[in-house]
C-alpha cells in the first residue's frame, strides 16, 4: 500500500537546533528520501510564503497566509510504499519533526 506521511512541524523547532544537530536532522530527512520504499517527497517553503485561494461564484479570492491557522504547520510530505500500517507508523516515527514538538499524520493514498 502507499502511505502519505504528512509532516506538521512546530515553527522554529528545526532552526533552533545547534548547527551540528541541525545537520544531523537534515541527514535523517535525506536518508528517508533515499530509502528504497520512498516514492515521493517534498519540503515546503515556510508558512509565511503561503497563499490561500478560494473560488466563489466564479471569482477567485486570494488571501495571504495558510488555510488552517494551527500551532503546527504543514511543512512537507513523503509517500512510502509499505506492507501495512505498522510499517508506515515506524517510518513516520523516524521523521525528526515528530520528536521536535510536531506530529506526522499517516494517510493511505487512494490507488486505482
Amino acid at each position: 500500500m502507499k502511505y502519505a506521511l504528512l509532516i506538521y512541524s512546530k515553527p522554529g523547532s528545526h532552526e533552533a537546533l545547534p548547527e551540528d544537530e541541525y545537520k544531523e536532522v537534515f541527514g535523517e530527512y535525506a536518508a528517508l528520501v533515499d530509502d528504497s520504499r520512498c516514492i515521493a517527497s517534498g519540503q515546503l517553503q515556510p508558512v509565511e510564503t503561503a497563499t490561500t485561494v478560494r473560488v466563489q461564484d466564479g471569482r477567485t479570492l486570494t488571501t495571504d497566509g495558510p488555510f488552517a491557522d494551527t500551532k503546527e504547520v504543514f511543512g512537507g510530505y513523503y509517500v512510502f510504499e509499505a506492507d501495512n500500517l505498522d510499517e508506515a507508523i515506524e517510518l513516520a516515527g523516524r521523521i525528526p519533526a515528530a520528536r521536535l514538538g510536531g506530529a506526522v499524520e499517516v494517510r493511505p493514498v487512494v490507488e486505482h
Binding site: 502511505y3 506492507d83 501495512n84 500500517l85 505498522d86 493511505p108
Partner: peptide, 14 residues
C-alpha cells in the same frame, strides 16, 4: 481495511 492495519502479532520491538 482502508489503512492496512495488519492482521499479525507485532514484531518483537513493538
Amino acid at each position: 481495511k482502508a489503512t492496512g492495519i495488519p492482521f499479525a502479532v507485532p514484531a518483537d520491538h513493538l
